[in-house]
């Protein structure tokens, strides 16, 4: 009897939190799923059910497919660049933990994460600028031909990957740093006695022991990579200067379909595809984490 009373009290106690969570988290997802099966022009009261027609149309929409490919390349590019760099930088910072400059190093790496997206992207736009940018000036100085960074279809994607990685790095380094601080010192001492050099300890001990951190950071990085928008919008304008056209990404495509083309149902189906991709990748990563826990 007491147990049941306690149970109801517990449910009652968490109900407000659950209600808020359901309203701000679950309802939008459920509504997006619902909308993806309808045709709706945002203004009309008429919202006919069209089943999976939106999804069928997506398969033949080259703008969507371009956006999907670009977004996937950017997300994985950021992941591939961020994870090893974050791990190495965190290892170096950890090695210098006792240094007087440790705080400065940590702040320097973390600042890009807290800087506003648009001004940061504007700064990078200047760095990559073909005529006035310091990157091309440097290339010219060392005798390498200057590049049309933000207008070349391949280079512009790379530029976005670099910008996104620069922003993601701070957070990833911070998480890795916490991971490094939690690794037992005696293991490294044992490895030292076993004959391991610094890089060997990093390879044989740090990387495997930081696997849970790596999985967490990769989930966060990948999810934010798939949600890339502002970076592409600011950085990659087409030849006429229209923002975001050079490198079309999924969120931009959704926004255009929703608020420029007034095809909310169609945009919702794009959102569902993005959700499925991100969810699938997250599930894969967490199942890897669980498998490691079992072993």
């Amino acid at each position: 009897m007491l147990k049941r009373k306690r149970f109801f009290f517990a449910i009652l106690a968490i109900l407000p939190t659950l209600a808020i969570f359901a309203y701000v988290r679950l309802y939008p997802i459920a509504d997006t799923l619902r909308l993806s099966l309808f045709q709706w022009n945002i203004l009309s009261k008429n919202k006919p059910f069209i089943g999976l027609a939106n999804f069928r149309e997506l398969l033949g929409d080259h703008l969507f497919l371009d956006a999907l490919i670009n977004t996937t390349i950017i997300a994985f590019g950021v992941l591939v660049l961020t994870i090893p760099m974050a791990m190495i930088i965190a290892a170096m910072l950890f090695h210098r933990t006792r240094s007087r400059m440790a705080g400065f190093y940590e702040t320097a790496v973390f600042i890009p994460h807290v800087v506003s997206l648009v001004p940061a992207a504007m700064a990078w736009k200047w760095i990559f600028d073909a005529r006035l940018g310091p990157l091309n000036a440097l290339l010219d100085f060392i005798g390498i031909p200057m590049q049309n960074w933000l207008f070349d279809p391949v280079l512009s994607v790379i530029c976005i990957i670099v910008l996104c990685s620069w922003q993601a790095l701070g957070y990833a380094v911070l998480i890795y740093l916490v991971g490094f601080k939690n690794l037992p010192v005696s293991l490294y001492e044992a490895a030292k006695l076993d004959g391991a050099s610094g890089p060997q300890s990093f390879w044989h001990l740090s990387i495997p022991m930081l696997k849970p951190i790596t999985l967490y950071v990769s989930v966060v990085t990948l999810v934010s990579g798939f949600n890339v928008y502002a970076q592409a919008f600011v950085l990659a304008s087409d030849a006429q200067g229209a923002p975001g056209r050079q490198v079309r990404v999924l969120v931009l495509d959704m926004l255009e379909n929703s608020f420029r083309n007034y095809r909310v149902g169609y945009a919702a189906s794009e959102a569902v595809v993005l959700l499925v991709i991100v969810l699938g990748l997250t599930l894969i990563q967490f199942s890897m984490l669980r498998e490691r826990g079992k072993s």
């Binding site: 005696s186 490895a191 696997k211």
Partner: peptide
């Protein structure tokens, strides 16, 4: 050319 046994064993968990 020494080997050491630590108080907490310091075995590599992975």
């Amino acid at each position: 050319d020494i080997a050491m046994v630590f108080q907490n064993y310091a075995l590599y968990p992975h």
